[in-house]
Amino acid sequence: MKRVAETLTVLVLGILVGALVMALWGRDPWSSYASLLSGALGNTRALMSTLSRSLGLVLTGLTFAVGVRAGLFNIGAQGQMLLGAVVALSCGLLRLPPGLHLVAALALSGLAGMAWALPVAALKLTRGVNEVISTIMLNWVAHWLVLYLVIQKLSDPILGQRTFTVPPGMRFPVIRGELTWALVLALATALFFWWFLWHHAKGYEIRAAGLNPRAATAAGISVKKAMTTALLLGGVAAAWAGAIQVLGRFPYAITSDLANLGNLGFDGIAVALIGRNHPLGILAGAFFFGTLATGAAKMGLRGIPIDMIYIVQGVIVVFMAAPEALRLVRLRRPAAKAKEVAR
């Protein structure tokens, strides 16, 4: 409860600083914020757009959060997300009945995400390689690999600027506007993560290992297994974040600069920080981010330079994320010491 209050305070502060920046630029902050809100939530169509944009963030947010719960700073969501997207897309080359096609694409994409998380776990647990280093490197490998596949192997035969679009039988059906039933996948995954962490033995072990690896080890919990589980689960969530951009969002393809996948993986980190690494908080955080992203365009339409919107976004994110980031650093210090002993 205290943390919720803290988050709200920080949100208000962030919005105020954003307003100050706009005022210094000679813009009216309140009408800007009003247009941001109306652009993101002002009608059904806008709300659907916002929700649709939030779904991927929910999933990559979960990836980071489950890592933190296990005591990891897993920033590999970006690479896993890209890979998940391209594998889901590639499934469009298979011939399968509608519906089953979608399920198969999700399954294979999830497996790809896991596969991309596996080396992180292996390097960490056998060679002691810090996950920050390995995930950054794997992110780049994934980026170039996916870029190669998208441009050279999967591009549309007529249009070079994107890949082919996935067949209708492989898409999430539309609920309304831009929103598809990928909504259910994101919500169900968040719900599963919550259930798993707080209602399953393995989730309990992940949390124990993350909070106090020494005590967990002493209690017979395998910290290595807990970390591996968290990394693999995170890999699936991140891969699905990419998959639903292809299977559940217009234009059902990947653009040749990967721009329609964006920085989902990295934005997920901020979402998780805002959501205090709790699945429910992450739902809220992702929606907040989706609102900013969709609403920012409307602010742009009202003549606020696009860069100003980035400043406002950045300010709010920094304000929101700072307390949690601090807490994380504090948590990691004793944890690092304890790990030495556990080894």
């Binding site: 009608n43 944009r53 969709t294 339409l301």
Partner: peptide, 22 residues
């Protein structure tokens, strides 16, 4: 005359929709 630039390719459709709705 009014002109604007997309903030991200993820927002093309919602941007254009917003413009059309106005």
């Amino acid at each position: 005359l009014f002109y604007t630039t997309a903030s991200s390719p993820m927002g093309f459709l919602s941007d254009l929709s917003g413009l059309a709705e106005s």
